[in-house]
Every structure is written in structure tokens, then in C-alpha cells.
């Protein structure tokens, strides 16, 4: 693949150099200190921080429901029961390599762990009745967005794509207010990353949103709060 033609590259770069604007541009960033992004000024006390977290979670839930995701809340010790309830009659559940074993301890169906022993195939994931349970890297309250960055509890991108039913476990501490905080929290931006905001949808028919196209048509979110 080393046959890249350098002449086009050099010519394009040369002509851009010849015509580009010569004034340096300074970028204003007031949005970072504005009423939304800035949040509170100064360090909140413990009680305030807890109240703030509560508000963020309320907002996240509101946004997710608006996208027609199913949202449940539970305490950390109740995760297995809540997941089992959300999964109901689902016969097979797929999990990424690093998903906590405890998550599905109350689930009675078949559990398939990616990479144990072999990576799951597309056919495995596309089979009827398969759901996938993943964690997430961070969640954005204002936009109802879950960020998956391929960490061990989230796995390869196709895991949360091919099955028609995706359950995502969000811990309270993973919820941030806006897009800037969420991107800043990503451990490594060069990892394959997917932002998920609700089940798959389209606005292509008369510019009105309809849920359910190629991605998972059912998105369940379990928010784990203390």
C-alpha cells in the first residue's frame, strides 16, 4: 500500500500555502464559563455535590426517556436483580470480556462472553433473541448520551451494534453535565469511541424522528445510584 502519489499532496499543500489567510485567529471559549458548561463556580461542598449529582441524574433520565430508551434506577447491590428483570425472557446475553460476573448473577438464560474462548462472530450476535449488556465510559446528562470507548466492560464496537437489544449500565459517578466534560473524561481519545443517544432512529421521512432502524432498536439504561 506504499504507492501514494506525492505530487498531488505537494501540489495541494503548495496552493493552500499560496492563498490561505495570513492573520492568526484566536478562538474565544466563553461557552466553557457560560451558564451551562461552567456549572457552579468554586468547589461545591459534599452536600451540594450530592444534590448536583442528583440533578444530573434526573436530567439524564429525562433525556433518555425522551429518546424512548427504557430507564431503571437501582442501588449497587440491586444491579443483578434489575438486569435480570430488564432482560426478562431474553434467551441469550452477550457481555464484553471485562463485564463484572456479578451483573448477570440473577439472570437465568445463556451468557456468552466475547473472547471466552473465541471472539464472537457477527452471526452469533445477529442471532434472534440476543441482547448485549455493557458498561460505559461516561454519560452526558444534558444530551442523554452514553459514551462507549472500548474499555473491558464495553468491548468491541460490534458488540453494542449488531444485537437488537442493548442494555447499558451507568454508574452515578460517570454522569457529567455537558459534552465538554464528557470528552475531557475519555482516557484515550484514539480508542474507537461511540456516542449513543437513544435507540437507533431516523429523521429521513418528512424530517420527523422515528425510532428503530439498523442499530439496536431497544436501548435499556440502568442507572446505579447510592
Amino acid at each position: 500500500m506504499g504507492t501514494v502519489d506525492r505530487s498531488a499532496r505537494d501540489e495541494i499543500l503548495a496552493r493552500i500555502r499560496a492563498v490561505r489567510p495570513d492573520e492568526p485567529v484566536s478562538v474565544p471559549r466563553e461557552y466553557r464559563t457560560g451558564p451551562v458548561a461552567g456549572g457552579t463556580v468554586g468547589e461545591p461542598g459534599e452536600a451540594e455535590a450530592a444534590a448536583l449529582d442528583g440533578e444530573l441524574i434526573e436530567l439524564l433520565v429525562d433525556r433518555l426517556v425522551d429518546y424512548r430508551a427504557t430507564v431503571r434506577r437501582c442501588a449497587p447491590q440491586d444491579v443483578p436483580g434489575a438486569l435480570a428483570e430488564l432482560l426478562g425472557e431474553v434467551p441469550t446475553v452477550v457481555v464484553p470480556p471485562g463485564a463484572p460476573v456479578r451483573w448477570l448473577s440473577a439472570y437465568l438464560g445463556r451468557i456468552r462472553r466475547d473472547g471466552d474462548p473465541e471472539p464472537l462472530t457477527v452471526a452469533d450476535l445477529d442471532a434472534p433473541g440476543v441482547a448485549v449488556v455493557t458498561g460505559c465510559a461516561v454519560a452526558i446528562a444534558q444530551t442523554g448520551t452514553l459514551l462507549l470507548d472500548g474499555a473491558p466492560d464495553q468491548g468491541r464496537r460490534l458488540l453494542s451494534l449488531v444485537p437488537d437489544h442493548h442494555l447499558c449500565v451507568v454508574r452515578a459517578g460517570q454522569v457529567v453535565g455537558g459534552v465538554p466534560e464528557a470528552l475531557a473524561r475519555l482516557a484515550d481519545p484514539t480508542r474507537p469511541t461511540t456516542l449513543v443517544s437513544g435507540p437507533s432512529a431516523t429523521s429521513d421521512i418528512e424530517l420527523d424522528r422515528v425510532e428503530g432502524v439498523h442499530g439496536p432498536r431497544r436501548l435499556d439504561v440502568l442507572v446505579v445510584t447510592d
Binding site: T143, R157, P192, T193, T194, S197, G215
Partner: peptide
């Protein structure tokens, strides 16, 4: 997203950098 489909966020955004072994 707010300017195009009038949504707070579009359902899916993918970010990828080069190739990742075993994924994609």
C-alpha cells in the same frame, strides 16, 4: 446535532483513529 436534525444529540456518533487490532 441541534442545527441539523433538531436533536440534543444524534443517535450515534463514531470516532475512530487509524486501525484498532481486533475491532473494526
Amino acid at each position: 446535532p441541534r442545527s441539523s436534525t433538531g436533536e440534543r444529540m444524534n443517535p450515534y456518533t463514531s470516532l475512530w483513529t487509524g486501525v484498532t487490532p481486533g475491532d473494526g
